[in-house]
């Protein structure tokens, strides 16, 4: 699916990604982990063709991202850390634009949009302006954009950042569903989330690859494993535990889409 060889990226004298090589295989959900500034987003941006590499090669579905970018990008759906949304459009208009830009056949566009809307759970808000949607729904529109055109690979860069615990659970379930049809790369800071959703782990630290393992092969605590590899101090664990507790407590609350709609409506009234 993806073959990365000796990938490096320098910003001036700073080496954000330092000679990393790994392979992404079909049919898995990959967790892409690392502390802040480790080079996760830079690597994802290079894989998706948003950024050039200083050295190395990236091949997506057999197409080099530098030499054959159009064919390589056809295989990828990408949700960057900040969803790239045109806020003056409705989700339907936005997805229609993305479908056309991705070259989806004219007679398939409507079907594709319906499918993406259903899978990302935005049926209730599909005809409202994106600027009036809550953050959770905006994230879902971003995910719908990524899966339009049935790309083989879906890359999600920290899709749960800034969401409330209930929204985090919803997005996490959505990612699990995506994993049934797509190969997914998920970047996240929440270790418990990665452990629950991903079956493979790639950990980078200071631009270097420090682990590429199956999640089930991690002996004991993932947090301990992560801290050992990245050399982080214990306080980082405290944050993770807090987030985990929030998520677990929210899991017991009943899910009600009307709440989210109400929230969206409240935001639009501000």
């Amino acid at each position: 699916m993806i073959q990365i060889e000796h990938l490096s990226k320098c910003y001036g004298s700073h080496k954000a990604v330092d000679d990393i090589s790994f392979t992404i295989e079909d049919g898995h959900i990959y967790g892409f982990l690392g502390p802040n500034g480790a080079g996760k987003s830079t690597t994802m941006n290079i894989i998706t063709g948003c950024l050039s590499m200083t050295e190395g090669t990236v091949s997506v579905c057999g197409h080099d991202i530098f030499d054959d970018p159009i064919e390589a990008k056809k295989c990828i759906g990408y949700l960057p850390e900040i969803p790239p949304l045109y806020i003056d459009m409705t989700p339907i208009e936005y997805l229609s634009f993305v479908a056309r830009a991705k070259g989806v056949a004219k007679d398939k566009i409507e079907e594709e949009i319906t499918r993406a809307i259903e899978r990302s759970g935005i049926e209730n808000v599909s005809d409202r302006l994106i600027k009036n949607l809550s953050k959770g729904y905006k994230q879902r529109v971003g995910i719908a954009q990524a899966i339009i055109g049935e790309p083989q690979l879906v890359i999600l860069d920290e899709p749960t950042v800034g969401l409330d615990p209930k929204q985090i659970i919803e997005i996490r379930d959505l990612i699990k569903e995506l994993g049934e049809k797509h190969t997914v790369i998920l970047s996240s800071h929440i270790l418990s989330e990665v452990q629950q959703v991903c079956d493979k782990l790639i950990i980078i630290n200071e631009g270097k690859l420090v682990a590429n393992v199956d999640t089930k092969d991690v002996d004991g605590d993932l947090e301990e494993f992560f801290l050992t590899l990245t050399g982080e101090e214990r306080p980082a664990q405290a944050l993770t535990e807090t987030e985990t507790t929030e998520i677990e407590s929210a899991e017991t609350e009943p899910e009600n889409p009307e709440d989210a709609e109400q929230e969206a409506s409240d935001e639009s009234n501000l």
Partner: peptide, 14 residues
Amino acid sequence: RQRTDQLLYSLPLN
């Protein structure tokens, strides 16, 4: 400003 340029860069368009 809206960071939608990232979408343009990642779309299969030259």
